[in-house]
Simulated scan of single mutants.
Amino acid sequence: MRTRLWHVVAALVAGLMTMPQTACGGDSQSRSDSFTVGLLLPSRSVPRWEHSDKPLIEKRLKELCPRCTVEYANAENDADRQRQQLTSMITKGVKVLILDAADARALRSSIVDAHRADVPVVAYDRLAEGPVSGYVSFDGGQVGRLQGEALLKAMGAQTKSSQVVMLNGDPTSPNAAWFRKGALSVLAGKVRIGRSYDIQGWSTDDANAQMSAAVAALGPDRIGGILAANDAIAAGAISALKRAGVRPLPPVTGQDADLDAVRRILQGEQYMTVYKPFRAEADAAAAMAVALGRGDDPRSVTTTTTDSPTTSRIPSVLLTPKAVTAGTVEQTLVKDGVYSIDQICTRAIRPACEKAGLTR
């Protein structure tokens, strides 16, 4: 995999804004600048898809290609539904697809169909199998490493005497294995993994059930930390721990910087989350989709290449995630405009915000 500096992408994305066009309006408008982009996201169970990724991608596409339109669909964690949605978009004549696969392997045949129909596919956040034309995500290994490092720091001296429960992501997502591998690269040999579960659909309810099983198997006093793959899973784990009467709560990791998770972090229920700057991811995907829709080489807006189980050297952008704890909410999430202090600090958690120095 070859890597260039991220600022190249920023410059190229900016370049798309000023690229000579046949015109943004008027009789001379080129057909290549009035196409439809299909956007397929995997679920509503993870808040970021609807609240962050969708509006950010739509906004950036409109900025880069004012006459382009967006056809949107959400799979609701159903790979069959997403296959139908993808087929429908091809039938309707979309020029390019941005796809976050509900099941990376199950969507492979649909991506082959898109390729045969000359509809390029940009794999978004998760690397789907099949002949995708581009890939935009975050370094999943680094996500796992940030979680593992934070957990070790929070556990402190308890790493020798207690156990970690790993609540991994959905096994149908290639990211889940990537996160787990990154976390284990930090945790292996330093803590004992008492239990490890795969959480179907990244479901809060499944995480709750598996955490309850871990408490029953290991005992409430022998769990020193929870490696939760994302914030929805963390929510289920914390609920189970509370119901079992575990006090104090062991440190719990997360990912996605969901608003409820940020509030849990400030209240001391969740130790950390991993923030993946969604705007940069959305910008890169939009830039790649517009380039492909115009018939340009996607490598003009990528920084590296990635190999999937089916395709080698996919033009890619892999961005850098950031760890967020109670002490860094302001300089990360608030600074980047993800949330305002007013959004985070409801009346119920205002004392916790003040304790963390998060005040207007």
Rank of each mutant, 00 (worst) to 15 (best):
T320K: 12
S300M: 14
A117P: 10
G245L: 03
P55W: 02
T159L: 08
P277F: 10
V274T: 08
L146I: 02
P120N: 10
H115G: 12
L292R: 15
K355V: 02
H115V: 10
H51W: 06
E71I: 06
E71H: 11
L86F: 02
A177Y: 07
A154D: 14
K54V: 06
I344P: 06
Y124F: 15
A217L: 00
G357D: 00
A79T: 00
I90A: 02
P251C: 05
D27L: 12
G225D: 08
G38A: 05
R126H: 04
P351K: 01
P120A: 01
F138P: 09
I193A: 03
N77K: 01
R264F: 09
V290Q: 02
D170H: 12
K92R: 03
A75I: 06
Y72F: 14
P171F: 01
R222Y: 02
V186Q: 05
Q84D: 14
A123H: 14
A75P: 03
T22S: 13
A232Y: 00
T87Y: 12
R44G: 08
L41M: 15
L5G: 08
Q158P: 04
D53L: 01
S203A: 00
V334C: 02
V186R: 10
G268S: 10
S162F: 05
F278H: 14
L187I: 13
R195S: 11
K335P: 04
V164Y: 15
R2H: 05
Q163W: 11
Q270V: 05
R243S: 01
Y72I: 10
A177F: 07
D139W: 03
V121A: 08
P250F: 06
Q147M: 09
L39Q: 12
D258Q: 11
V324C: 04
A285E: 11
T22N: 03
L292K: 07
G182D: 11
R222M: 00
D296N: 14
A356V: 04
S173I: 02
Q82N: 04
Q267T: 15
K153C: 09
G38V: 05
T91I: 00
N77P: 06
L266K: 07
F179K: 13
A101G: 10
S162D: 10
F138T: 04
M1K: 05
P171S: 06
R192V: 08
Y275S: 06
R279T: 13
Q147L: 04
Q270P: 05
